[in-house]
Design a protein around this nucleic acid. Structure first.
Length: 312
DNA sequence: CACTCGTGGCA
DNA sequence: TTGCCAAGAGT
């Protein structure tokens, strides 16, 4: 008997008991609007697009208005890209808004306006990667697939591997890690939501609240004395002065007006460095987030331009 | 694999 | 103040 036990590698012994996480979740779950019972798969997909690299608090004021205005893929696809970009506002990474618009068109045209429930099909949609495909399959269709986001990877890194933070993402290993924890029955989907919630509320990147953690008695990282992260940390990404900031400024000008704007108007948005400004504008045109009209002015793609200032 | 791509809040 | 970070995807 002891012989068998000793043959089990430490890494693989159980440190996460699903029932502990689920009972914690029952009391700690946030009342997020996209978790309500009458929310459709499409509306859940919209929330996942918005939540890609964007905090919940910033999505909260945008999502309800968005899904009320465009409740289905076909309704979304029928909107102009300009209206979509304006409704997206300052959520950031506006290419997501464009991909969401494209995604709506594909679902409306190729899937009869019904969001697929299969991970492989979902992942072929524009803007839908491994995480989002699994999140929709799980949260919208209750499929028992592993859902691995940055929160889950951090919880697993700590509780299972005893490391302060997760290393670089590795789809195969990450999915295997979570699959090993998933309760095999109809609790799997709820468990995935609970694991994400635990990472978001308790097992946070900075100053985790271990006192309130349902895993505190078995967490390998805690049992090891909460050692600091090992290895080199990636240099923090800058924003001030980057092309991304310039793109943001240019797009901000175009979102704020119903009419097309001249190149001189765009110059005002980033006067200091014309070379960088032109590079940013070119990249926005290349991304299809901005278009240039025949008269040389610029506008969000597909917007109505019946403005009286148009030169004839 | 490494890099780009927004934005704002918080320690 | 500045650095860190937030339900990633695409190239």
């Amino acid at each position: 008997m002891p012989h068998i036990l000793h043959a089990i590698p430490r890494e693989r012994s159980v440190t996460v008991h699903p029932e502990d996480v689920l009972s914690w979740f029952a009391t700690a779950e946030r009342d997020l609007p996209w978790r309500a019972g009458d929310v459709t798969p499409w509306q859940i997909l919209v929330s996942e697009f918005m939540l890609q690299q964007t905090p919940v608090a910033r999505v909260l004021p945008i999502w309800p208005d968005w899904v009320a205005r465009w409740p289905t893929p076909s309704a979304t696809a029928a909107a102009s890209q300009a209206d979509v970009l304006r409704a997206w506002g300052k959520l950031g990474y506006p290419r997501r808004a464009k991909r969401l618009h494209e995604c709506a068109g594909v679902i409306a045209r190729d899937f009869a306006d019904v969001v697929p429930d299969d991970v492989e099909l979902l992942q072929q949609l524009p803007g839908v990667g491994s995480y989002t495909a699994r999140a929709v399959a799980c949260f919208a269709y209750r499929r028992p697939v592993p859902v691995v986001d940055t929160n889950v990877r951090r919880v697993v890194a700590r509780a299972v591997h005893g490391q302060a933070d997760a290393g670089p993402a590795s789809a195969k290993r990450d999915h295997a890690d979570v699959s090993a924890l998933l309760p095999g029955d109809d609790q799997a989907a709820r468990f995935s939501a609970a694991l994400m919630e635990l990472g978001a509320l308790v097992c946070t990147a900075r100053s985790p609240r271990c006192d309130g953690c349902p895993l505190r008695s078995t967490c390998r990282w805690r049992l090891a004395g909460s050692p600091p992260p090992v290895g080199p940390k990636r240099p923090a990404q800058r924003y001030a002065g980057t092309d991304r900031q310039v793109r943001g400024r240019l797009l901000d000008v175009l979102r704020d007006t119903d009419s097309a704007v001249s190149r001189a108007d765009l110059d005002l948005a980033w006067p200091v460095d014309p070379v960088q400004r032109e590079r940013a504008l070119a990249s926005l045109l290349g991304d299809g987030l901005v278009e240039q009209l025949a008269d040389g002015r610029f506008a969000l793609p597909g917007q109505d331009r019946n403005d009286s200032t148009a030169s004839r």
